[in-house]
Nucleic acid binder design. Structure first.
Length: 481
DNA sequence: TTTTGAGTTGTTCGA
DNA sequence: GTCGAACAACTCAAA
């Protein structure tokens, strides 16, 4: 503590991490209501033990979201401090530089992050510095929601019923009107963190699609509630149309909370059919379920939830993995998905399932390879949803897809992208093919191919593996376990 | 303790 | 073209 600070004038530190917002921010609100000077601090911690470095797409998002948050906080009267390093080290340094006697934050739920924050809280309290944490990232506390016999849930439906039975989620908080700033110590420069890609700059597709930051999140929510929510039950499966909320990257960065989302879905205030609303609420519930699973299984991204799968005979072919990553498998719906991911940092959920199933079941490549690729390329890469979903597709996860559910990439394409709009957008070399052949160009007669300007094997690959063969091989592999 | 009902998202085959 | 059954048991959660 500096000699000049008194108890009443000592500032309160508010830690920002995965909660890049000022509204429905309980830690910020609590800090504001103390009447003390508020020092918002973003800690970029890639060093604490067990931390998984942020992927490239999320680094890009983080840069822009921090720029937005910095402006918002400056406008409210308390500029955002940026500091990089181990959480405890950074916080200790700021306490000694500012004389802060209180540290507040919103809880994180990755087990590694829980451990970091628990140690921080204990060490602060030991030194008589007030330390409090708040909810916001999740509707439920994974440590508190239990089955009747005291265990954790492993099946989604009873989990969701239990969550609903907890009662209505709390109302979201407004943003503070004004913050009392304090003396501001030196901050890092955002640009010095080099979060943006330079050589090459691959982010132009991301810039065209996304508006990182709290305002962008609220705009997406409002557009969804007054638009695609009506018909969501059907529209959510059609990658060629804008039928989903596209809130995932905003949620992953805490630019919006599930409390805000559910409040916007109150049936009284909107016209959409209750079935569509319930369907979307349950999707929010899947995110909660994933965190529930991660809390019980800290190694969810590394270890099979069902250990029987440790014996699965993966093939692990680097060339095929690379073809999948680059969107060159020869299956248009898979390739469109993988290219959407590469170009925009996001992939439609229906196509995620098809592309993931293809990697795992057609190519017999370990789901962890896919999980890693998604972690690096998704702007919504989430420590819970990403591994939980990959394990779900693999069949090793909780409440997982049965082994015989092997997506047929042609049928999936024809069913959910019937006119081929999605494939045409992301696989332009096939854009001129008629809908009848857009999902299986290898069946197209020669004259149709040449009219469409497609030479298979030259402009677009022939399938890297035959579907029926792959299916039989996968069924055999699963039976062999 | 035992029982019971249920369990996100599909495909293929044969009638 | 359409429809129902088979694909396989197993584990979970609650009564």
């Amino acid at each position: 503590m500096t000699a000049s600070s008194t108890a009443t004038d000592a500032p309160v530190l508010v830690l920002f991490r995965t909660d890049l917002r000022v509204a429905d921010n309980r830690a910020l609100m609590a800090a504001s209501s103390t009447g003390k000077p508020v020092l918002p601090l973003f800690v970029f911690d890639q060093e604490s033990d067990g931390t998984r470095p942020l992927g490239g797409a999320r680094r890009w998002w983080l840069h822009h979201s921090l720029a937005v948050l910095g402006k918002q906080l400056a406008r409210l009267g308390a500029p955002l401090l940026l500091s990089r390093g181990r959480m405890e080290v950074v916080v200790d340094r700021l306490i000694s530089e500012t004389g802060a006697d209180m540290v507040l934050w919103n809880r994180r739920y990755d087990p590694t992050e829980i451990a970091v924050d628990s140690r921080l809280k204990a060490s602060l309290r030991e030194r008589n510095i007030r330390a409090e944490s708040f909810d916001g990232h999740l509707l439920h506390e994974p440590s508190l929601l239990k089955t009747g016999s005291g265990g954790s849930y492993k099946v989604y439906s009873p989990f969701w019923r239990a969550l609903v039975t907890q009662g209505e989620p709390r109302d979201p908080l407004d943003a503070p009107r004004k913050l009392r700033g304090g003396k501001v110590p030196a901050s890092d420069e955002l640009d010095d963190w080099a979060l943006l890609p330079t050589t090459p700059d691959w982010a132009h597709g991301l810039r065209a699609q996304w508006a990182p930051g709290e305002a962008g999140a609220q705009d997406s929510l409002a557009a969804f509630v007054s638009g695609a929510l009506d018909g969501y039950g059907q529209g959510r499966d059609m990658p060629g149309v804008a039928g989903t909320s596209r809130l995932s990257p905003h949620l992953a960065h805490g630019e919006i909370t599930p409390f805000q989302i559910l409040a916007a879905l109150k049936p009284a205030s909107i016209d959409a059919p209750s079935g569509d609303i319930e369907k979307f609420r349950k999707e929010v519930g899947w995110r909660e379920f994933s965190y529930h699973l991660l809390f019980q299984n800290p190694s969810l991204a590394q270890v099979n939830f069902n250990r029987d799968f440790d014996a699965f005979p993966w093939a692990g072919n680097r060339e095929l993995l690379s073809a999948w990553q680059r969107g060159l498998t020869g299956y248009p719906i898979v390739d469109a998905g993988m290219r959407e991911l590469w170009q925009t940092g996001w992939m439609h959920n229906r196509v995620r399932m098809v592309a993931a199933s293809f990697l795992i079941k057609h190519l017999l490549i370990d789901w962890r390879e896919g999980e890693k690729w998604f972690w690096d390329t998704l702007v919504d890469a989430d420590p819970a949803s990403n591994p939980a979903s990959w394990q779900w597709v693999a069949g090793s996860g909780a409440d997982a897809a049965p082994y015989f559910r092997i997506f047929n990439p042609v049928l999936q394409g024809e069913k959910f992208d019937p006119d081929g709009a999605y494939v045409r957008r992301y696989v332009p070399e096939l854009a001129k093919l008629p809908a009848k052949y857009i999902h299986r160009p290898w069946d197209a007669p020669k004259d149709i191919l040449s009219t469409a300007g497609v030479k298979l094997g030259a402009d677009y690959p022939v399938p890297v593996i035959d579907h029926s063969l792959a299916r039989e091989r996968a069924l055999g592999a699963y039976k062999s376990m």
